[in-house]
């Protein structure tokens, strides 16, 4: 299932990116519909399973938040959301695709399909924008990390209040390297999460720098028409 899903969404992502490279902004509506459909299927599967909704469906995991942001982004691309998705959404979703962790529910097959499509569409969103001619700015990396920390602080408070474990801030997912850091104590564990986020953001900043050095291979500089009010790129 994982290999087939990755192959399909990899091909789909390449097609969308190439299309955006030719003429930017045309496929946003279609991608929004797919994302909305994926999220609806996920909700339906979880609700049908009878699992406690507070512990599973609040958009307090990074990917849940990014899914909502990506859906809005496909309709109205903004620079702030673009950089958040580039620096945090894309690496997070890519990790989830490589190391999937899906809830066990009666409707397992639709949930798994929705899991892969949601994460793939999160990862595709910033690539779709970059192929349309708007490169991510390396200078936006610190702001994305700060936004991530603010979000984590909010989620930590919610976790403590409701006794849930969104963003794995209170306990590490079993069987992952994070379990080792958790055994060292709360502070080393939280510091390891921070270091992982900083590593992701740093790696994506390097990727953004690399894109800027080889722009022609990634996007078409003539994908957008000049603005009639004075030729500025908007």
């Amino acid at each position: 299932m994982q290999a087939v899903s990755l192959a399909f969404w990899g091909y789909f992502g390449a097609c969308v990116t190439l299309d955006a490279r030719r003429r930017s902004g045309r496929t946003g509506g279609m991608l929004f519909t797919l994302m909305a459909l994926s999220m609806a299927v996920t909700c339906a599967c979880v609700v049908q399973s009878g699992l406690p909704l507070v512990q599973t469906l609040l958009p307090l995991h990074l990917c849940s938040l990014c899914a909502l942001l990506a859906a809005a982004f496909y309709l109205h691309p903004t620079n702030g959301v673009y950089h958040f998705l580039w620096y945090l959404g894309m690496p997070g979703a890519a990790l989830a695709l490589v190391f999937p962790s899906v809830l066990q529910v009666p409707w397992q097959a639709p949930l798994e399909a929705a899991f892969f499509s949601t994460h793939a569409l999160i990862a595709i969103a910033p690539l779709w924008r970059a192929a349309g001619g708007t490169l991510p700015m390396p200078a936006a990396a610190p702001r994305a990390l700060a936004q991530c920390n603010l979000f984590a602080a909010f989620v930590y408070a919610v976790d403590r209040l409701l006794g849930v474990n969104y963003l794995f801030l209170l306990a590490a997912p079993p069987g992952t390297p994070l379990a080792f850091f958790e055994s060292l104590g709360r502070i080393p564990y939280l510091l390891s999460l921070e270091a992982a986020a900083a590593l992701c953001v740093g790696a994506m900043a390097l990727a953004a720098r690399g894109l800027a050095r080889r722009p022609g291979t990634w996007y078409n500089p003539l994908a957008r028409d000049s603005d009639p009010s004075g030729n500025a790129v908007r």
Partner: peptide
């Protein structure tokens, strides 16, 4: 200005990034 760079007109045009 174009995404990622600029078109410069002189003796011909160049897309510079």
């Amino acid at each position: 200005a174009v995404p990622g760079g600029v078109l410069a007109g002189a003796e011909g045009v160049a897309c510079l990034t």
